[in-house]
């Protein structure tokens, strides 16, 4: 394709954008809003995922066994637990060891525990780790139904709550994004439709002069994509500056909640926003080109 032809496409596209004025602005702004929503919910998801990952290594399931099980029964239980889906590590802690652990944790006051050796009240215990945090609940439920297991404990419902919150954020974020995204596509296609109507006559003449369909369509496609790009750049800038100041603020106010701040992740997220903006623009203009440009 010739430079001159490409220059022609862009010149025509920008002429249309300026001619449509406010509508172009509204279309780009809607793209920006939908992408800001998407960007924010993606950041929340990325962060909760990261948080869940960190909790995963700290949250383990403790399965307390009934008193007086045979060695053989304990080995069987061990095997059953090991082969539950999601389980990555099973550690058996006999009651004697548990007591010693407890002693160590009591430090200088371990005399309190003197005399328990002969009548150890602690149960034999399995400590289980799962691959992902959201598997903890299911694995714990299965273990508690096994014969010989007295009781099962794990992180005080924190994991459950985290999983639920993440899921909701995903649903609400994606839902809002789809709604506003649809509005953005609609506005872009309206803008392009106006451009097509404004240039009906010109389009007719172009066709009589032997312009190919793509020659006629390209300026409109570019117009839509430029609007999408403008919106997505605006969104990327807003999300980026907003998130950076949040990270900074959190680092001071709540340093125990570590926010994802490595450049790679954020860059990829911003790139995805820009790509999506271009996609929204292309889709919006394609709709109008197909409906209103009978070439």
């Amino acid at each position: 394709m010739r430079i001159r032809t490409i220059a022609y496409y862009f010149r025509e596209a920008f002429l249309s954008i300026f001619r449509n004025g406010w509508l172009s602005l509204a279309a780009a702004a809607t793209v920006a809003i939908s992408l800001v929503i998407l960007g924010c919910s993606l950041l929340v998801v990325v962060n909760t995922d990261r948080l869940a990952d960190q909790l995963e290594s700290s949250v383990e399931i403790s399965a307390f066994l009934k008193d007086g099980l045979e060695q053989e029964e304990i080995r069987e239980l061990n095997d059953k637990i090991r082969f539950l889906p999601g389980v990555v590590e099973v550690q058996f802690v006999p009651k004697e060891e548990a007591l010693q652990e407890m002693r160590r944790s009591f430090g200088s006051r371990q005399d309190i525990l003197d005399g328990l050796e002969d009548d150890n009240p602690l149960p034999d215990t399995f400590r289980i780790k799962t691959r992902r945090a959201d598997q903890v609940v299911e694995v714990a439920r299965k273990i508690s139904s096994l014969d010989g297991v007295e009781d099962v404990r794990y992180g005080q419902g924190l994991v459950e709550r985290l999983v639920v919150v993440t899921r909701w954020i995903r649903v609400v974020g994606v839902g809002a994004m789809i709604l506003v995204g649809a509005a953005a596509i609609f506005l872009i296609s309206t803008t392009i439709r106006l451009s097509v109507f404004a240039r009906r006559r010109e389009i007719g003449i172009m066709k009589y002069l032997g312009a190919t369909n793509w020659f006629v369509r390209f300026p409109f496609l570019i117009e839509g994509m430029v609007l999408g790009l403008l919106g997505s750049l605006l969104a990327a800038a807003l999300v980026y500056t907003g998130y950076l100041s949040l990270v900074e603020h959190m680092a001071r106010a709540m340093p125990f909640i570590p926010l994802v701040s490595d450049g790679q992740v954020i860059f990829r997220l911003l790139a995805a926003l820009v790509g999506l903006g271009l996609g929204i623009g292309a889709l919006g203009s394609t709709i109008s080109i197909h409906r209103f440009l009978n070439v």
Partner: peptide, 9 residues
């Protein structure tokens, strides 16, 4: 324009 639509230089 007649030349332009044909992609002339």
């Amino acid at each position: 324009f007649a030349l332009e639509v044909t992609g002339a230089s």
